[in-house]
């Protein structure tokens, strides 16, 4: 029963937490830029506003893609918080992103199109690292199940420092922060207007925003897993990690896709795999 309760709690609470995180993000960013910034609850106002607007679409199927994006994002999060299989969470995560990409493709605007292609580049950039994160968790805790990983008293971070660094990079991409906000960004994007979200408006855009909030919570939940042995440290780690992302956002210019792909793969390939290989070796070598 508990997994189902957890999933329901996630589905109900995650948007609230995610929205607050987004609000804090905007506030802190504004302070870093020497501004007062919007109210803390601004993201909720934004979404509320978007729901008040009329639905403008290029093609009717956009609605379907956005809804699927939201639903599968919630599903993957619910799987995560009900302690499901980490790999399955990742696959559901990818599935939901594919819907976002397809939604962008379906509008036939060149800006959406370029955004969609860039989003795909981002997906191939970060996905290896996410899978390696799951693999790392497995190597440490001998299970892919989030419930087992969280229950383990092993300080995961001690074994997976490299993977954690790689995961932070993924977080930058996923939170759509500079330097990796290729496909769309929170403010006007100087290259491709709004990228993937260009042709969504009103309630559809609001759904994308809510899906982002769901996503934030899952992504930060993964950070928790690294420190699952001690909830207080874990929450501190989440705050520090998020703050770090905001700092990175504010101190980098946007990278090009080549750079993004290379950096992401290099970090996943070098730091992530080396970390895992060391772990393999230390574990008494399933080497040969």
């Amino acid at each position: 029963m508990i997994p189902i309760v957890n999933a329901i709690i996630y589905i109900l609470l995650a948007p609230i937490i995610g929205g607050l995180v987004a609000g804090i993000d905007r506030k802190v960013t504004a302070r870093m830029q020497g501004r007062v910034g919007p109210p803390l609850l601004q993201p909720f106002y934004d979404v509320g506003k978007l729901f008040e607007k009329e639905t403008v679409v290029v093609t009717i199927s956009q609605n379907f893609h956005v809804l699927s994006y939201l639903v599968f994002m919630a599903v993957s999060g619910a799987l995560f918080f009900s302690g499901g299989d980490f790999l399955l969470v990742i696959f559901a995560f990818t599935l939901s992103h594919i819907f976002l990409v397809l939604g962008a493709y379906s509008s036939y605007s060149p800006y959406s199109h370029v955004g969609a292609e860039r989003e795909l580049i981002q997906i191939i950039a970060y996905e290896p690292m996410i899978i390696l994160t799951a693999v790392g968790m497995y190597l440490v805790t001998q299970s892919f199940n989030i419930s087992d990983i969280i229950a383990s008293s092993v300080p995961v971070i001690m074994y997976l420092p490299g993977v954690f660094v790689g995961y932070l990079m993924v977080l930058t991409i996923k939170l759509r922060k500079s330097p990796f906000d290729l496909s769309t960004s929170h403010h006007a994007h100087q290259e491709i207007v709004k990228g993937v979200t260009t042709d969504f408006s009103g309630p559809n855009l609001a759904k994308i925003e809510i899906a982002h909030w769901y996503e934030y919570v899952v992504l930060l939940g993964v950070v928790y897993l690294f420190f699952g042995f001690n909830p207080i440290i874990a929450i501190a780690a989440i705050i520090i990690a998020y703050f770090l992302e905001i700092v990175i956002d504010n101190t980098f210019s946007r990278a090009k896709w080549q750079m993004t792909l290379k950096t992401a793969w290099l970090i996943a390939g070098a730091i992530g795999i080396v970390n895992l290989a060391t772990l393999y070796y230390l574990r008494g070598g399933v080497w040969l």
Binding site: Y105, S106, H113, L120, I121, I123, E127, I131, A268
Partner: peptide, 20 residues
């Protein structure tokens, strides 16, 4: 991990083409 991600790219862009 790498190869699986790469496949996402070419299949998804094909899907996108069909529906754009």
């Amino acid at each position: 991990a790498f190869g699986g991600s790469i496949t996402v790219f070419f299949w998804a862009k094909w899907m996108g083409k069909i529906i754009s």
